[in-house]
């Protein structure tokens, strides 16, 4: 009697005939299962990837680090010089009758921060649409325009940071009307050493205004930044009165003998970013009109900064705007703070 399963011939036969439809179907089914699993895995990977490399706030995070890094390099180089009995220093424009009266702290450089818009805004007169705070200062960044000065890493530059609402300015003019991208943007201003203008005026406001006038070389550090806060503070161990109760700080303000020509020892830097989808929706809704995201009553009193940030968080959440707050204390190592007033 012959066995039912003559093995060798069947094998031989199978090898010869290839895969059966069933085999293929099973294979495909298995493959489907594998691919499905793999796709699920890849989906997860993709999500992880997006959450990191393409983090909607990654640009903001980088910008925050840049601002923090540059602010920490702020310098003022104060020295003691003769002032007359009104507290004014001798300058090239001083009359020959300048009569020195006493020594006062003086710096040829400046450090300013505070509100960018509003009645006392640093950029109000510039015609720019800005919001929140801003900061302008000098740091030895060594940025130059000419090859001749390459390698001179200690050259001074004026730097500025502010949040401005504007259209896409990088796009070619013929495209711009079509591809409007109205956004709040964190702008960076770096004045090359060759054109450093800080020595040109004795007060800060004209200096700031000269730098931010239309056509000034600013660059976009990050889009969708809706708030920048730079708050000068005392050292952590110093319990003295607030240096800047209203966020305003001008090291050239002759009216403030305490902060005059002094670099604050510490800064609190905060930056609020929203995501691009939210920004697109806002742009669609508001067009060239700047969407009011930060209530006007906020960020006017430094003591309420934490509460104001929380309020802003609540307000943005309520409007279903994805956002993220970056904040940090920054030490200014060049500062040698003293409570001795100088006028």
């Amino acid at each position: 009697m012959r066995t039912f399963f003559p093995r060798r011939p069947r094998l031989k036969q199978a090898a010869g005939r290839g895969f059966s439809l069933l085999e293929v179907l099973v294979t495909l089914a298995l493959l489907l299962i594998v691919l499905t699993t793999l796709m699920q895995f890849m989906s997860n990977v993709d999500q992880v990837w997006k959450s990191t490399a393409t983090d909607p706030f990654a640009e903001a995070a980088n910008a925050f680090e840049t601002v923090a890094h540059h602010l920490a390099g702020a310098t003022l180089e104060p020295y003691q010089d003769y002032a007359d009995n009104t507290g004014a220093f001798r300058s090239a424009a001083s009359p020959v009758t300048f009569t020195p009266d006493h020594l006062a702290r003086r710096s040829d450089l400046t450090f300013v921060c505070g509100s960018s818009s509003g009645a006392n805004g640093w950029l109000t007169a510039s015609g720019r649409v800005t919001t929140g705070g801003c900061a302008f200062f000098i740091a030895p960044r060594g940025y130059t325009q000419t090859n001749a000065h390459l390698g001179l890493d200690h050259l001074l530059n004026a730097l500025g940071y502010f949040v401005e609402f504007s259209d896409e300015t990088d796009a070619p003019a013929f495209i711009l009307p079509v591809t409007h991208r109205w956004r709040w943007r964190l702008k960076q201003l770096v004045q090359p050493s060759e054109s450093l203008a800080v020595y040109g005026s004795a007060t800060s406001l004209p200096w700031v205004q000269s730098m931010v006038q239309t056509g000034a070389p600013t660059s976009v550090l990050a889009e969708n930044i809706v708030l920048l806060v730079v708050l000068p503070e005392r050292a952590a161990t110093d319990t003295g009165a607030a240096l800047s109760p209203d966020f305003h700080y001008d090291s050239r303000d002759a009216g403030n003998p305490l902060t005059r020509h002094q670099l604050p020892p510490r800064l609190r830097l905060a930056l609020m970013a929203i995501d691009e989808p939210s920004a697109q929706i806002l742009a669609a809704q508001n067009g060239s009109q700047p969407p009011a995201l930060v209530p006007e009553n906020l960020f006017t009193v430094a003591a309420q900064l934490d509460a104001d940030l929380a309020s802003l968080d609540v307000a943005l959440t309520a409007r279903k705007i994805q956002h993220r707050l970056f904040q940090r204390e920054i030490l200014l190592p060049a500062a040698a703070w003293t409570d001795t007033p100088s006028s």
Partner: peptide, 29 residues
């Protein structure tokens, strides 16, 4: 009443400006 030099490299620039650009000191980089 010129500014004090904030850093050594600033020595290559003078205290005056011409057309918005700082004039050079007679010191080359």
């Amino acid at each position: 009443t010129d500014r004090l030099y904030g850093s050594l490299d600033e020595l290559c620039f003078g205290a005056t400006t011409s057309s918005g650009q700082r004039d050079a000191n007679p010191i080359t980089p």
